[in-house]
């Protein structure tokens, strides 16, 4: 049956070569679609894992009123420690906080002979992040806590990350869909063009009694080949983009560690999707053909 396969493959590649430019367009658009979808998937999962690492670092600062007495501050610390969901409460006195601030920002604080403006500060970490909101609300109401901005809640960062992630999800979905549609239409069109270009061959095949599989398979192979080539191209571009972005992130934000590019997985997933996609598009193109003129 190798002989058979050779014939079918040959038929498919003859037409791939014949309409080079349309093939090129179909491949690059499918590649772009897969690249966009893959790229957004990477950004999304990257951010998700980044957000995960942030969560473990998630903590809040509670500032005592500046006019609270040391006893009151101590009592506040005790009460905070007892709250459900709190892992640890560390105390830093106003003097310590001020010293640390001066050390970190010498250009702001040097020369200024002002009184220590910093409050006594409790840093709270959590065992259960879901309780964080309740704890924050509770702390805000306590009399010893500074009435305005008494609780520094890092949830804003969290919320921002979540917003960005949902934006990426939507953008990826919309752009990916648009590109997928474009790529699909182009694959579909290539097959239609092939069918026009090979009308004579197909007619002869049908005339001498070639089976439908014989007539159809080369066209399907063509669609699949376009999808797979698009996928390989997308993988390569993703790989390059990934290493560029990784370098950028690692040099500008030294804290962020970008993982290795999962080359094999990406290539396999994209190729399978590309192949399935090419198959569907070429099938749709073939199916639309009126095989025989059918009178009523």
């Amino acid at each position: 049956m190798f002989d058979r396969l050779e014939f079918l493959l040959n038929e498919a590649f003859v037409s791939l070569r014949r309409n080079k430019w349309i093939t090129f367009a179909a491949i690059t658009t499918s590649a772009m679609a897969l690249f966009i979808i893959g790229g957004f998937a990477f950004a999304y999962f990257g951010l998700a894992s980044f957000a995960g690492t942030q969560e473990s670092k998630f903590d809040i600062n509670v500032f005592a009123r500046t006019d609270a007495s040391p006893e009151q501050v101590q009592a506040l610390g005790k009460r905070l420690e007892k709250l459900d969901g709190v892992k640890a409460v560390t105390f830093r006195s106003k003097a310590e906080v001020w010293k640390a601030f001066q050390k970190e920002n010498p250009e702001i604080s040097s020369g200024l002979e002002i009184e220590n403006p910093m409050p006594d500060t409790f840093n709270i970490t959590f065992t259960d992040l879901k309780k964080a909101k309740d704890i924050v609300a509770y702390a805000r109401k306590m009399p010893e806590v500074a009435p305005k901005d008494g609780v520094q809640y890092m949830g804003d960062v969290q919320a921002l990350i979540e917003q960005v992630m949902s934006a990426i999800r939507w953008l990826g979905l919309v752009l990916g869909t648009v590109m997928l549609a474009t790529g699909g239409i182009l694959i579909y069109n290539t097959i239609r063009l092939t069918m026009v270009a090979r009308k004579k061959e197909m007619r002869i095949m049908e005339l001498v009694g070639a089976t439908r599989q014989t007539v159809w398979t080369p066209l399907m192979i063509e669609g699949v080949a376009e999808g797979v080539m698009g996928a390989l191209l997308a993988t390569a571009v993703l790989w390059i983009a990934h290493s560029v972005v990784a370098k950028l992130l690692e040099t500008s934000l030294s804290v962020v560690k970008v993982g290795e590019f999962p080359l094999a997985v990406t290539a396999i997933v994209l190729c399978l999707s590309g192949a399935a996609y090419g198959l569907v598009c070429s099938y749709l193109a073939i199916r639309e053909r009126p095989t025989e003129e059918l009178p009523r």
Binding site: K200, E201, R203, I204, E206, L207, V208, G209, A210, T211, R212, T291, E292
Partner: peptide, 21 residues
Amino acid sequence: PEEVPMLRRKIGIVPQDFGLL
């Protein structure tokens, strides 16, 4: 439509326009 190819193999068809490649 599935049966057409096998029927056609029992019939030689000479089209008017030759249909040569």
